[in-house]
Structures are given as structure tokens and as C-alpha cells.
Amino acid sequence: MERIPILRMGGFLLVTIQVDMHDRLVTTLQDELTTMIAQTGAHGVLIDISSLDMVDSFIGRMIGDIAGMSRVLDAETVVVGMRPAVAITLVELGLSLAGVRTALDVEKGMGLLRAATRRRLAEADDGGVER
């Protein structure tokens, strides 16, 4: 069966979407991803969509849902690598993926997540929480 691989990179998870998404694939991905966040205690999820030549509202919703689920599990989602033509089309379509962070590539996405993690730790320190 077709699956989308989820890789562990440091404390984060990397999902690279390379195939044309359909319903079953999305459901499987969401199942596996949430399970893995819970198992690994990852604080960040990177979704690499640089291979996608289009994002419609179905995929837009999938990304939004993944971000929402991850947030509940205390992980932040960053979408990386959206192509210019895809971005232009998405804006015209009327989707802005509100609430989802973006980065140009995986490296910059990792940078964002690291900075977020540092902030989180610093806040925890300020709050005087013992670790």
C-alpha cells in the first residue's frame, strides 16, 4: 500500500509529500503522524511540499488539520518548500493557511522550530518551572 514516510530529524518529524494525495493516503498519514508525535514526544513537524505542483482546498485542509492535531499534541507545524506557482494559485483560490507557519526549505524550517523550542524553554525558565 502507498504510504507517506515520516522521518525523525533530531527532535522533529519530517513528512515529505511527493505523491498525488487522495483520501485514504491522508487518513493514513494523519494516523501515523499523530501516533509518532505521541511516541517520540516531538515538538515540531515539518511538512515538505516542494514536490507538489498544486495545492487545492483538500490538501489545504489536510495541512490545516495536521497543524491543529500537532498543536493539541504540543508540537508546532511548519510547511516548507511551497512553489511560487502553487502559492499564487492558493492566494487566488482564497486560502491563506492561517495559523500554519511556513519556511522556504527544510533547513530554514528546522531553524524556525529550533528557535521556537528555545523560546519555549526560556519561558519555562522564566516561569521558574523546575526541570
Partner: peptide, 28 residues
């Protein structure tokens, strides 16, 4: 359907943005 629209729009000589727009509309 998406793949067919991609193929047809490429054959018609659509630019990348135009291709992406019609493929996305077709998908919706």
C-alpha cells in the same frame, strides 16, 4: 483527472502559473 489536465495544459503551451491554476480548479 488532475494528471490529464496537467498533460493537456502542457500540450497547449500554458505557462506554469496558468497550468497550476487550471489543475487546481479541476481538482476542486
Amino acid at each position: 483527472v488532475r494528471q490529464a489536465v496537467r498533460k493537456w495544459s502542457t500540450e497547449l503551451g500554458f505557462g506554469l502559473v496558468d497550468q497550476t491554476k487550471i489543475i487546481t480548479a479541476a481538482s476542486e
